[in-house]
Design a binder for these strands. Structure first.
Lengths: 158, 158
DNA sequence: TAAATCTACGTAGTTAACTACATAAATGCA
DNA sequence: TGCATTTATGTAGTTAACTACGTAGATTTA
């Protein structure tokens, strides 16, 4: 695992994916330590609904930064867990409005101190010379200015 | 897409995955610009075999930093493209040794100048205040010292 | 040297995201 | 007001990685 890292174009995503897998697995265990049955991937949805109690599917998708089909499948799982429920928007029949159940709200209260712990641990983890979150944001900004393709074409034209 | 970013524990992987998807898609087009039919995900395998011409499946997997099943599926595709071929190791019948075909080697020569272009473009892209590659390496180092789980437990015990 | 263990490879099935497409309701406009 | 367009949701299928498990050959050890 050395040859590629030097040229480095690929493999970042795989590494980040693994990193995230590890964090998710540990996240699950941290919840377990506190007798909570909760999958880390549900966090964005649950947290969004905690802050904004009534959202449509697409609003929620936008809020958590996923596509709507991904969001729908998360919602399906959360509905099975009785953590959320949904109702038709009477003003716009296409829209399905999602909200926390009582069980969902109660769970959040139990999770809050655990979130504090996770945030502390996570912050320490990424608090290195080059900040991972910042780095991603910066690269996204760079890409917005000019895509990889455009950059390559510009380079080729030199 | 704001609520979550602040607490930020999750979502990094998704963002990196998308980033990588974009790079891969653009990568494909950059090759196309130069009349080359090559999928960016094949790069690690091909490049490794360019540098180390004869490798077993597991050696190769280790070289590119993937699991061996992932590697096998890449090899299957590359074999279909006639870019690589494999032979049994006569000394150890379990091992399958992989190498570039003539077509594979020839393609590499055509790709080399394109790689130069990509490396230049990519380097510019990630050359921001917080270096993405470095950030990932640093977090991996942090995790090696102490896992997320251990950190959370230590935090909880305070 | 036979049995137990280890190693290499392969297959099957899972996961968590995605894109593409379909349908129904709402909106805009001629 | 009726048709065209847009928007919201849902479904199906894809992708690129993974883990778990099985088998066959090689190695170690009692």
């Amino acid at each position: 695992m050395n040859v590629i890292d030097q040229s480095g174009i690929l493999g970042i995503a795989t590494r980040l994916q693994r990193l995230s897998d590890r964090l998710r697995k540990d996240g699950l265990l941290i919840y377990k330590d506190h007798d909570i049955d909760f999958e880390p991937k549900w966090f964005p949805v649950i947290y969004s609904l905690h802050v904004k109690p009534l959202l449509s599917v697409v609003e929620l998708a936008h809020e958590i930064g996923y596509t709507h089909p991904s969001t729908i499948s998360l919602l399906k799982e959360l509905e099975e867990q009785n953590l959320i429920r949904s109702v038709k928007d009477t003003a716009d029949e296409r829209r399905r409005l999602v909200q926390l159940t009582h069980k969902g709200s109660a769970l959040i209260e139990r999770m809050k101190p655990v979130w504090e712990i996770m945030i502390t641990a996570f912050t320490a983890l990424v608090d290195t010379k080059n900040n991972l979150m910042q780095a991603i944001i910066e690269v996204e900004e760079q890409l917005e200015k000019q895509s990889f393709l455009q950059r390559a074409r510009a380079t080729a034209d030199l």
